[in-house]
Structures are given as structure tokens and as C-alpha cells.
Nucleic acid binder design. Structure first.
Lengths: 118, 118
DNA sequence: GACGCATATGCCTTGACGGTTATATGCCTG
DNA sequence: CAGGCATATAACCGTCAAGGCATATGCGTC
């Protein structure tokens, strides 16, 4: 799980995965779709492969990549105890009562790109 | 979501979250539990805070931290389309048919660090 | 078997991140 | 108001990973 999280922390990687979710694709396809250099894509694919998040099929010179979801289950598992919170527990309320100091001044934006640190 | 994934890629941070999942805690508690230096913990808490993953309540000199699950929902959302795959679709089978070249020679290990590339 | 395409890999640079130590801030107590 | 906690921040360093370019490898074609 550690692995999966780490691998998916990379936006490019999630992007690739999302592309592959629609359909399996050869590398060239991904290169075109992501506007990254071919080596960069290949590197990401390697990482994804090593994390078990994609599988490869060799078709002549092409390598067709496909999503593998197994590792994602681990993330899902990790998420489970927390999932209970946003269904049963009164999280959204509670935090609104205490925080108030540095987050959401008025709206209810889920804190997307708040980081201003570095 | 980008943020949440990135933040949770850090094992220490997941650890902290897991600790806070059991109960809200002051920083000193986390320092003790994680065996990290106090500044290190504070930094992680800052990151978690900015990602909206924890909230703080000030109790005298203590700062009590608590889990906030809202950002996790976004991860859950992202996960959703994939989740269908491991329930309905025949992912585990499919990959086993094509891959075969570099993964799981015999068992059914979830492909954590199987590659022998380097 | 030489050429060309598709992909992988090596090497290198750069930037971001985690951890450490030292210090600032805030609050409570005497 | 001086001293001491609890926590945050600053400055700094080492590491590591992502991306670029150049090149190797594999395979099909002629």
C-alpha cells in the first residue's frame, strides 16, 4: 500500500492510469496524450509496472499497457476506517467548530491547493 | 485530490493520521507515539493541516489535532471507477493471461516488489 | 543483415522534501 | 513579570526522484 500511495502521488502517473482506464494503450499513445517525452512516459510506466498498477502485453514492437487494480484495493482498505467517518460520524460539523483559525474563511472548498509553504 | 494523494504518500503522515483516527491528540502525544522529533511532527501536521486532513483545537498551550476526512473523499472519488474493475470486471484474470513475462511466476502475491529489473 | 520504428535504459541536472538543530511565539504559573 | 512548557518556525543539509538528452535493445521489413 505504501507503494501504491507513493506511486499515485505523481499526477502524471495518475493521468496515465486514467488514460489506461478507458482503454489499454501502447506507449506512443500515452506519449501523445500526455505531452511528455517518451522516456519520461516509459519511466513512469516502469514505476507503475513495478507497483503492479499496470500490466504489459508485447505486440510486435509495441508494448500495450493495461490497468491493474489489485494494488488499489490496498489503498481502498486503508481508506476504509476513515470512510466510516464521513458516513456515520459528524466530521464536517466538528471540524468547523474547532478549526476556524487557518482554514476555509467562509466557503466550503475542500482545501484543494491551499499550500503556500514552499 | 492531488494534494491529498501527495500528502498521504508519506508513511509518517499516514501513521499520524492513523493515530489520530483512534482519538484526537496533542502534538506531544504524537511525538511520543511516532518516535520522531517534535519539529518533524509539527511539520507533518502543518502539511496535513494545509491539506485539510486534520484540524486543530487550541487548549491552553496544547494543540489538539483531529482527523478530518473530507479530503479523503476525493481520493475515494478518484478510486471509484477503478473500484468497479475489481468487483465486476475480470481484472485479476486478464492480467494473468497477458503479463506472464515478468510477474508472479507461480503464487498469487499481489505484486508488491516482484520485478527483478534492477 | 542493414535499416527503421517503438520502447527501454543510463547519465546528469535540478528541484522538492524530510529530518535536524536552534530559535521564536504563546500561554500558564509562581 | 520571570520562568518554563508546548508548539511552531527558520535555516540548513542530504537525499531522492522527475525530467531531459543520448543511446541501447528488440523486432519487423526489405
Amino acid at each position: 500500500m505504501t507503494v501504491a500511495f507513493d506511486v499515485l502521488a505523481e499526477p502524471s502517473r495518475r493521468h496515465i492510469l486514467d488514460l489506461l482506464l478507458a482503454a489499454e494503450r501502447p506507449v506512443a499513445d500515452l506519449v501523445a496524450a500526455t505531452a511528455m517525452s517518451q522516456p519520461a512516459v516509459s519511466k513512469h510506466l516502469r514505476v507503475l509496472r513495478e507497483a503492479g498498477l499496470v500490466s504489459v502485453r508485447t505486440d510486435a514492437q509495441r508494448r500495450i499497457y493495461r490497468v491493474r487494480v489489485e494494488p488499489l484495493r490496498t489503498i481502498d482498505e486503508w481508506l476504509r476506517p476513515y470512510r466510516q467517518l464521513w458516513s456515520s460520524r459528524l466530521d464536517a460539523l466538528e471540524h468547523r467548530l474547532d478549526t476556524m483559525d487557518s482554514s476555509e474563511p467562509g466557503g466550503d472548498a475542500p482545501a484543494a491547493s491551499t499550500r503556500a509553504a514552499e
